[in-house]
Amino acid sequence: MSQALLKASGIGVRFGGLKALDGIDYAVGERELSCIIGPNGAGKSTFLNVLTGTLRPSQGSVLFAGTSITGLGLNRIARLGVARKFQIPSVFPSLSVEENLDVARWGTASAARSTKELLELVQLDRVAGKLAGELAHGQKQWLEIGMAIAIGPKLLLLDEPTAGMTPQETLATAELLLRLKGEFSIVAVEHDIRFVRALDCETLVLHQGRKLRSGPFREIEADETVRNVYLGRR
């Protein structure tokens, strides 16, 4: 693995008496693509919140490029180069698609792509003038991915990017991420196994707040324990 861009060690999170996460070590190298999977309630979203610095872990620490980002303001975290796509598509409904991307580009000083390039990248150039609130669900998801890319991140975190997408859209999303791989680090939290299979990358499996397995997806898929808790029960 190349030098770690994001390093989480001994992460534990408690909500009252409930242990949501327990003793998780995790690292993402620069320009690497990786996935986090696990059944419902495994703690995926909680873990992502810890990684993005929006949730302070009860134990352990998260370092992004060698410094702690936990507890920093959302805008500071974004300016350091951490982009996030939320689980519920959150675009700006009163602005047009183009304006959404403009606003995203203006947020940081590190925007690498022009709005036109972004529109083409996420295949929304034909609806550039349409209000984002009027887009179809899949298009909203793509717009939000485009907005996250727009800030010119070092690390892109995606929370269930393909939720609610058709199988074709899901595969197209995987292709998009594979195209972006190598440009910046990407972590995708997913539920949809077809998507993860298409990405075929380093994968962390969470189960009941603990790390169950980690490794290349092919090995994960072949693993007996993982099949039992997760893959077998689709």
Partner: peptide, 24 residues
């Protein structure tokens, strides 16, 4: 212009705007 569009974005979804780097 830019100022107003960012304000509209903040009005629509302040958390999202902040997560894009805007100091809302």
């Amino acid at each position: 212009g830019r100022w107003g569009k960012v304000l509209t974005a903040i009005q629509d979804n302040e958390v999202r705007a902040a997560a894009l780097g805007h100091n809302a």
